[in-house]
Amino acid sequence: MPADLEEKTDRYERMLADALSEAEAVAPADTPLGEAADECREMAESYLRDGRHFRETDDPVNALASFSYGYGWLDAGTRFGLFEIPEDTELFTM
């Protein structure tokens, strides 16, 4: 695997895992927005698992794509106000 692809895949996996641990759902769970937050988190977690599976099967391109899509779900949820993030983080584009 080219070094650039390996480094980027490592970085995006870390970013997604870190973002999942930092993002806290703020919408009440029993509302449509709470359900949307749950769905965003579920999608991000699924893409993290998929990306790790692709890495294990020596498919770095799909691993990187999965990590990127998962991160995108959390980033969108944060922009829509579904998640609260620490003010001192650089994980999101807010």
Rank of each mutant, 00 (worst) to 15 (best):
L91Y: 10
H53S: 02
V26T: 14
M1S: 03
L33R: 15
A23V: 05
G77V: 03
E13W: 00
D88A: 01
Y12K: 02
G77E: 09
T78V: 09
Y12R: 01
Y12I: 02
R11H: 07
R55L: 10
Y71M: 06
V26P: 15
M94N: 05
S46L: 06
D30I: 03
S46T: 04
E6P: 00
A27V: 12
M94G: 10
Y12W: 05
R52I: 05
F92M: 15
A37P: 14
H53E: 11
E87A: 00
M1G: 12
R52S: 11
Y12M: 01
G72R: 09
D58E: 14
P86T: 09
R41W: 06
D59C: 11
G72D: 07
E35C: 00
S66D: 03
F83M: 04
G81K: 07
T89H: 03
L48N: 06
S66V: 13
P2E: 11
I85K: 07
W73S: 15
R41S: 06
C40E: 12
E24Y: 12
D58K: 05
L91H: 08
C40L: 02
D30A: 11
G72T: 04
R52D: 04
Y69P: 00
A65V: 15
A25E: 07
F80P: 04
E22A: 08
E35A: 09
D38I: 01
D10H: 08
R41Q: 12
T9N: 06
G34E: 11
V61Y: 07
A23Q: 03
D10M: 02
L74V: 10
P32W: 09
A3F: 07
P60G: 00
E84D: 14
M1Y: 06
V61D: 15
L64A: 08
R41D: 10
Y71I: 06
E13D: 02
D88I: 00
T57Y: 03
Y47V: 12
E13P: 01
E35F: 01
D38S: 14
W73C: 02
R79V: 08
F92G: 02
H53F: 13
P2S: 06
R79M: 13
E42G: 14
G34I: 09
D50R: 15
P32S: 08
E45P: 06
T89R: 01
V61W: 02
M43R: 04
P28S: 03
L33F: 05
Y69E: 05
Y71E: 06
D18S: 12
R41E: 08
A63L: 04
L20R: 15
A17S: 13
G51Q: 14
L64M: 11
K8A: 04
R11I: 02
T93H: 03
